[in-house]
Each structure stands twice: as structure tokens, then as C-alpha cells.
């Protein structure tokens, strides 16, 4: 191949989109041709610049917070319909199962393996269909965290209180900021930083808006080197908590929150599959400072309710998005 022909292939070569024969010819030519090597380097540099610029340009823009509401509105008035993509996923799996019933054993085994491959393939192709959005996941992780619940209780939220939450993606992969807001006036109570990466799903940090208080959470939910039993022993110092424990209540979840001034341990006590209370322990003083009772009539700790969008500005910079949740603590 001459320089002109090689030149036409250099971009594909950089993008790894050439055949083995073409690659061999290009490599052989480049080793003997300084001007084509120079051209290759120039192309590679433009590619790098372009990738980088696209990242910078797109980092500055994002869809508006009311985009989903605008899409949803006209569709709500339309007739029932399944999203065909989802039907296709389900029908493929169903057809596979139907066929499986009519086949001999050896074919069943093979078809079974293929079905698994198909399902895995579909899972990889359309992951979003098989789980919640990362924002919704971050919101749920935040709301179900005993540390977050403890701070909400601290802020005067009772069992029937509502808290509005909305997650914002950070500039770090898998890290979301969940804004916790008062429902009446949408003022910001605090921000929970949540890692949604599989295996790490947890609240990393809670910041309260008042007095710029910031709490760090430990993944173990306990102070360093302290066992659950040690915490339970401290909790037993409170007669009410002791009563629950003696009646067979168990610790269902723990949280450890620390700020430069304070250290708290939160314990959730459960009996007969229902959570009874949240216990707040001042770990510096090793004493129970408050017991927040949970309403036994509530089956689950958290109830998610989607309400209408409230677009608007908060504190001059926050825009509220379409997903609101209610938490009952």
C-alpha cells in the first residue's frame, strides 16, 4: 500500500477498526515511513483533544429538572399501553419457557443454558429495565439509613411526617447527593451523600444545613473497635430501652455518626418483624439521650409516594426535580 492508501486507514487503525491484514500492512508501512508516522500522531492528538473537549462541553449542560414532567403530561392522557421494548423482553423469555416444555430432555438442558445466556444478554443490553434508576436507588438508600432517620427525628420529624427527597448526580461515578427537604416550604434540611455502586450501597456522609453541621458515617454502623454488644450495654442504661430488650427486642440496624464535636450511635430495635424505636446514644457520654418511638401500625419503615412535579428554585441554586418520596419514621 502507498502513503495515500495508508492515510485513509490511519483513523480506523487508531479506532481499532481494521482487519488483521490491514493492521499488518499499516504497521509495516509505518516502520518505514516517517511522514505517515507524523500523520498518525497528529490524528491521535486530534482524537484526544476531541474526546476531552466533548467531556468539558457536555459537563456544563444537563436536562432541566422538569423534563420528565413535560414528557409525562401528554402521555398520561393516552390509552393504556405497554412499552413494547419491555414486552419484547418478557415475551422472549416466555417463548423460551413454552418451547422448553415441549422438548426432549437433552434439548431442554441446552435450551436452558441458552435461555440463561439470553436473559443475561438482555440484562446487559437493557439494564435500566430491570432495576430502578440510580437516583431513585440513592433516594431509597438515604431514606432507609438509620443515621438519616435519626437526624430527621432529631429535626422534629414524627412518624407521620413527610420528607421530600431528590437525588442529584455528583461529578463522581456512583456518588449521588440526596437533598432532604421539608414538605411544607421545601427548605433544605440536609444532604446525604450516597454511594450506589453495587456492594457499597450506603450513605457516606450527612450534612445538615443549620449551623453547617456535617456528620461522617462509618460503613460498619459502629464506632471503631466497638461491638454491637458494647453498644447494647450502653443502651441498657436507659430503663425504657432495657424494658424493650428484656421483652425480646433485638437490634435491627445501627448507625454511627461523627462530627468534630459529637459522636452518636443510632440503634433501631425490632420485635416480631416490626421496628419499635430508634435509640440515640451520645457516644462521648456513653448514654442514651433520646428514644424515638416508631408507630407499630406501619408495616414498613419507608413508604414511597410519587407526587406531581414542583419545578422551582431553592435557596437560589437548587432546582427540585420530579421525584419526591415520603418517609415515615
Amino acid at each position: 500500500m502507498n502513503c495515500k492508501e495508508i492515510n485513509q486507514l490511519l483513523l480506523s487503525y487508531l479506532d481499532n477498526e481494521v482487519s488483521t491484514e490491514e493492521r499488518d500492512a499499516i504497521v509495516a508501512h509505518l516502520s518505514a515511513c516517517p511522514s505517515c508516522r507524523e500523520e498518525l500522531e497528529a490524528l491521535a492528538s486530534t482524537q484526544r483533544e476531541l474526546r476531552h473537549a466533548f467531556k468539558v462541553i457536555t459537563a456544563r449542560v444537563s436536562p432541566s429538572s422538569y423534563a420528565w414532567a413535560t414528557i409525562k403530561q401528554p402521555l398520561e392522557r393516552e390509552e393504556h399501553r405497554r412499552i413494547p421494548i419491555l414486552i419484547m423482553v418478557k415475551s422472549k423469555v416466555k417463548r423460551g419457557i413454552d418451547r422448553l416444555r415441549q422438548q426432549p430432555v437433552w434439548q431442554k438442558a441446552l435450551a436452558c443454558a441458552l435461555s440463561v445466556a439470553l436473559i443475561v444478554g438482555l440484562c446487559l443490553t437493557i439494564p435500566s429495565l430491570l432495576g430502578q434508576s440510580p437516583e431513585a436507588m440513592a433516594e431509597n438508600i438515604a431514606l432507609e439509613d438509620p443515621g438519616v432517620q435519626l437526624l430527621l427525628a432529631e429535626k422534629g420529624f414524627s412518624v407521620s411526617s413527610k420528607v421530600y427527597v431528590v437525588a442529584f448526580k455528583s461529578d463522581k461515578r456512583n456518588i449521588y447527593y440526596v437533598h432532604l427537604m421539608r414538605p411544607e416550604d421545601k427548605t433544605l434540611i440536609g444532604i446525604a451523600t450516597v454511594d450506589v455502586e453495587e456492594g457499597k450501597r450506603r450513605v457516606i456522609r450527612i450534612e445538615l444545613t443549620e449551623a453547617s453541621k456535617s456528620y461522617t458515617l462509618r460503613p460498619s454502623g459502629l464506632p471503631e473497635g466497638v461491638s454491637v454488644d458494647a453498644v447494647i450495654n450502653v443502651a441498657r442504661g436507659n430503663p425504657e430501652v432495657r424494658g424493650f430488650l428484656d421483652a425480646g427486642a433485638e437490634v435491627s440496624r445501627t448507625a454511627y455518626l461523627s462530627s468534630p464535636e459529637k459522636e452518636f450511635v443510632g440503634l433501631a430495635l425490632r420485635q416480631d418483624d416490626k421496628e419499635l424505636c430508634l435509640v440515640k446514644i451520645d457516644w462521648g457520654k456513653r448514654e442514651v439521650v433520646k428514644v424515638y418511638m416508631l408507630d407499630k401500625s406501619h408495616e414498613s419503615q419507608t413508604t414511597a409516594i410519587r407526587t406531581d412535579v414542583v419545578p422551582g428554585m431553592m435557596d437560589g441554586k437548587l432546582t427540585v426535580s420530579s421525584t419526591f418520596e415520603r418517609i415515615e419514621i
Binding site: 444537563s62 436536562p63 423534563a67 420528565w68 414528557i71 409525562k72 402521555l75 398520561e76 392522557r77 393516552e78 390509552e79 393504556h80 399501553r81 405497554r82 412499552i83 421494548i85 419491555l86 439494564p127 435500566s128 429495565l129 432495576g131 430502578q132 434508576s133 440510580p134 437516583e135 431513585a136 410519587r306
Partner: peptide, 20 residues
Amino acid sequence: MAKQSELEELEALFHCHKDM
């Protein structure tokens, strides 16, 4: 009227792919 669950499915798709 569109079913809430269908719109939730679409919403999940939307949140996953809106940035792209």
C-alpha cells in the same frame, strides 16, 4: 389513561438515558 406502572417503566428508562 396511561397506567402509572407503564409511565414508571418509561421514567426508569428516562433517568437512565436522559444524559446520553
